[in-house]
């Protein structure tokens, strides 16, 4: 007993995990087979590069005011200049540079908030699913209450109370989004904990914490990855909506939502101000959704 049986349990648990997650070779084969998956990955890769190298890529300082060149149209239009590819706004700021810098905020807020909600949600899901009973009941009632009302509603209450800033925004979006993880992870745990390797681990007296960390956590990672990817997409939309409403990112930090909201007042004269940031959001979110859908097809055992 002891060491040997633990090793067998570990091996069994790993086989189960590998069966579900597959190998890198299988992944890349599956990726190439899916057109949307490949497109999604390329878009996400491209946006990430833009965000990381924004200071090098942006032709201008995104906040540089230029009184000599207000409302310059995109370069291919009459009166446009090659210096400002996508034109300038009411303060003469370069739209392309603002969009390039805006990608940083979108990705930062999107990923940070999703990681925060993922950690909260996975922990609660693991605990609720593993221990069950009254604790599970209370936690799930809490999840139901959260799911009952629109996500944006809680975000608004948070923002009304704490005031807008990038940190509040990440915390707010992180705290309002954990419920979907909790629910799905709990469901997974309920089925995994009936597997032989978990029962065996219990029977030889492995501690609960250790079972959760060694056997359950690795097995819900795939669920975590799928929901996370798709959540980044919805979080980016939510962030841009809140910034658009003036409740999210505050100047001088540039966000696609604030660029859009600046442009809203000049629709009659300068259509490009509100148009391009929206296209940037749509393409980014589309890429993430493609990637997420593909990941779900590959990782989700229910769709296999």
């Amino acid at each position: 007993m002891g060491e040997q049986s633990k090793a067998i349990i570990d091996a069994d648990s790993q086989v189960y995990m590998r069966k579900r997650n597959g190998t890198i070779k299988r992944w890349s084969k599956l990726l190439l087979r899916s057109k949307t998956g490949t497109v999604g990955l390329l878009i996400v890769f491209f946006i990430t590069l833009v965000a990381v190298f924004a200071p090098i890529l942006a032709p201008h300082d995104p906040n540089a005011i230029n009184p000599g060149g207000l409302h310059v149209p995109p370069s291919w239009m009459e009166g446009g200049s090659a210096e400002h590819l996508l034109g300038t706004d009411n303060l003469g700021r370069d739209i392309l540079s603002r969009i390039i810098y805006g990608s940083q905020v979108s990705l930062l807020v999107g990923i940070a908030a999703v990681l925060l909600s993922g950690i909260i949600g996975v922990c609660i899901g693991l605990i609720a699913g593993f221990y069950g009973g009254l604790l599970d009941n209370i936690l799930m009632r809490f999840v139901d209450s959260f799911l009952a009302i629109p996500t944006i509603l809680f975000s608004l209450v948070f923002l009304a109370v704490f005031g807008p800033s990038i940190i509040t925004l990440i915390i707010v979006l992180g705290l309002t989004n954990w419920t979907s993880y909790a629910r799905l992870v709990r469901g997974e745990v309920l089925s995994i904990k009936e597997r032989d390797f978990v029962r065996a681990a219990r029977s030889i007296g492995v501690k609960n914490n250790k079972i959760i960390i060694r056997h359950l956590l690795p097995n819900v990672i795939s669920t975590f990855i799928v929901i996370s990817t798709l959540s980044v997409a919805s979080t980016i939309i939510l962030e841009s909506s809140l910034s658009f409403l003036g409740l999210g990112i505050q100047p001088p930090t540039v966000s696609w939502g604030t660029v859009l909201s600046d442009g809203r007042d000049y629709l009659a004269t300068s259509w490009w101000l509100a148009t391009f940031p929206g296209i940037a959001i749509t393409i980014t979110v589309l890429g993430i959704i493609f990637l997420g859908d593909w990941l779900r097809d590959v990782l989700d055992p229910r769709t296999k």
Binding site: L260, R264, T275, G278, T282
Partner: peptide, 21 residues
């Protein structure tokens, strides 16, 4: 899918741009 990726408020602004402005 595209509808899901497009922020709703932006669609609204684009509609204003097209039909009103």
């Amino acid at each position: 899918v595209v509808g899901k990726a497009m922020p709703n408020f932006w669609l609204g602004i684009m509609l204003i741009l097209l039909f009103s402005v």
